[in-house]
Design a protein around this nucleic acid. Sequence first.
DNA 1: GCGACAG
DNA 2: ATCTTGTCGC
Length: 249
Amino acid sequence: MTLSSEQLERDWAAMTPARAKALQVETARQVRLQPDGPAPVTVAGVDVGFENRDTARAAIVVLRYADLEPLDYALARLPVRFPYVPGLLSFRECPVILKALEQLRTPPDLLLCDGHGVAHPRRLGIAAHLGVLTGLPTVGVAKKKLYGRHGPVPEGRGEWTPLMAGRGSAAGKSGEGEVLGAVLRTRPGFKPLFVSPGHRMDLDGALERVMHCTTRYRLPETTRWADGLASNRGQRWLARLEQLPTPGH
DNA sequence: GCGACAG
DNA sequence: ATCTTGTCGC
């Protein structure tokens, strides 16, 4: 871990939307879109839920990459101190996520985040930001678009269309402009997912990781576990995790 | 002035 | 994100 959650809280104590935007532009320079290191042995899904208007709860579940069996998990709570502003999500959710990460017995090799990676107006969605803060490879998996444009999405499982930089709904002119991510069909007949690399990752790698983690549902197993735990009705998921052979709690 | 707008 | 009942379908 490159940074402690307490340190981050101090650093961001006086954060405002205006300062946050400026910090994003600086931080985005540290994002590396080159895959590195060996293939992942473990993958973690992370998500944040809100117990009420001012208490955030982060959930992280680590799965074995090979068979997606849960190996460890962590939960953390923290007061909310930044509003939800489209484009500034990381400033609201990163502190509590780092706190949960610190409680993990083994840092994962890869982090799948709820939200975008570099498919962001300033190229620093929460997955990219979290990657820089932790030094971990990350991938952004979002259910809705924040920024960019794209054409029709193919119907077959695993098929995708590029998400191009720019505003509006028109498809980016083919072969022109920067490709930020992909609109991926993980399940025929369902709305596609928005996948983009976060840090230490490229688009092909991101798509490969997401497809590997997505078996019989629209969302990756990592996201499903994390969503379940972060949710206000996550007791049912907790029951299964507390039976882990090598529990982290 | 009118849309778009992660979680 | 969260608030919420029933309902349609395998």
